[in-house]
Write a protein that binds this DNA or RNA. Structure first.
Lengths: 264, 264
DNA sequence: AAACCTAGTTTCATATAATGAAACCACGGT
DNA sequence: ACCGTGGTTTCATTATATGAAACTAGGTTT
């Protein structure tokens, strides 16, 4: 499944660099790479020439390159809910005065697409582009809950179920009952499952056909409110989600987790 | 120079998709592509499998994929000035109350890395990740002015010199004298050269060695102020730029436009 | 200072993967 | 039923990626 052709391998290398989250040396990568020395070396050269990577000659380190930022802008504007949702998120943010997140599901992980801080608007890549675990975030669980059973199985398979807090759901079984609850409610919570003191209410964004387009959430702290307090946002969240879904409808959305086109 | 190997070609295809700025059909791309039909077809398949592209089966269109957003987040955090500059930009924004831009030079174009909106937001062309022309933006001219002569020549070579407004500099000669002025002043302006009514003052961010790290600018409109008014921001801009440069120093920055590593 | 690492770079015969002309589908129109 | 356009697949040919081994530059130990 993974790695089709030379291009796939090169992109794996790119992912590997990105995964470090810091400039990384050749030897370091080599140790963790399935590729032999010269192969890895050439991939890094090629990617650097293409400015997908940036090379620091002093420290001899590689990091993700600026060309990605440019490409991502196009991706963000065309292939995510963000541009459609923007006005609705703005309105929601103004109404609730709390941190608002917009997320989509990408490859078994939650990808944050946009964000409004309570106080000041934050730029797109400062938070947007960040990924989080699907099993212990409000948006993650809510999106998962409304996916096809087959997708749910596949995604659960890939979760690490790392315990972040005392409340983290750490077993597939616990997660499945939670998903079931979410399906009957129509929305879900994060009960300090990812960070202590941080709670949120999350609402799925569903197309007419019931397909999951994304999710949005309002986040707060236990010091400011509680789950019941967050629940008062349900109407406005539902309203916002359905407006986004409506607008997305006309746009006719690409299927991000589309099955491979070819059976090969 | 362009296109080293299969990977380079695939990335060219990716760029092509991104350049359209909208979902694009296979046949449309084929018409504009140097590749023969099956080759282009396979590149699109590979990129789609890798989620660098998103394919809409209904409309049979391709757009940039979400994987890019994730990768770009890493790039933004590691290979741009943005994380280092953030606190300083925040302070600057608060002090001047106008739109503030942070930009870097990427491949003869201006890449906007971060942005703070004015209290009173004016709808404008720019956003983080967006690119603009180097020859008719404040940040572009200012960065170019302090580049090596060889780089200047190369970049000027690649400019389109499209006339956006009456004030746009449309010849290499005009641009070169402007750059010379900027070098002696230490900063530069955008005199409605890109958009009518929009003016800005731009300050380069230079390392100790005099290398161009990026630029920042304060933008306003002719209805609110004039060039002389913007000039009053020079001290705070200089201060901000030097603080960013100082912080970047310790970080030891990758060279984005590094010469190719190998003489081949 | 000679010997010896270690990390990075280059070579080159071989294996592998990309290539693209042509053939093939699928479907909407006539 | 026929044609035509747009998309997909085949397959012999060719170009490209591959990786063992050899090499080089710095730094470290004897």
């Amino acid at each position: 499944m993974t790695s089709d052709g030379t291009v796939g391998k090169a992109l794996d290398v790119l992912d590997q660099v990105a995964a470090y989250g810091r400039p990384v040396r050749f030897s370091e990568m080599l140790a963790a790479s399935p590729f032999p020395k010269p192969t890895l070396y050439r991939f890094l050269q090629t990617l650097t020439n293409q400015r997908m990577l940036a090379y620091d000659p002093d420290r001899q380190t590689y990091s993700p390159g600026v060309r990605l930022v440019r490409l991502a802008h196009a991706a963000w504007e065309q292939s995510t809910l963000a541009p459609i949702a923007r006005p609705h998120i703005d309105a929601l943010s103004a109404a609730v005065g709390e941190t608002v997140h917009l997320a989509q599901l990408d490859h078994a992980q939650v990808l944050y697409i946009d964000k409004r801080n309570a106080n000041k608007p934050v730029q797109m890549f400062s938070q947007a582009g960040k990924v989080g675990p699907a099993y212990c975030t409000g948006v993650g669980k809510v999106m998962l809950a409304f996916c096809d059973p087959a997708v749910i199985d596949a995604v659960i398979e890939q979760q690490s179920f790392h315990r972040f807090t005392a409340a983290t759901l750490t077993t597939p079984a616990a997660l499945r009952t939670e998903l079931s609850d979410i399906r009957s409610n129509g929305y879900g919570f994060d009960r300090e499952e990812h960070e202590p003191g941080i709670i949120c209410i999350a609402m799925p964004i569903l197309s007419d056909g019931g397909r999951v387009l994304g999710a949005l959430s309002v986040t707060s702290t236990t010091s400011r409110t509680n789950l019941a307090g967050l629940e008062s946002y349900v109407p406005i969240l539902q309203d916002t989600a359905s407006k986004i879904a409506r607008d997305a409808q006309s746009w006719s959305f690409p299927d991000h987790d589309a099955k491979e086109q070819t059976g090969r």
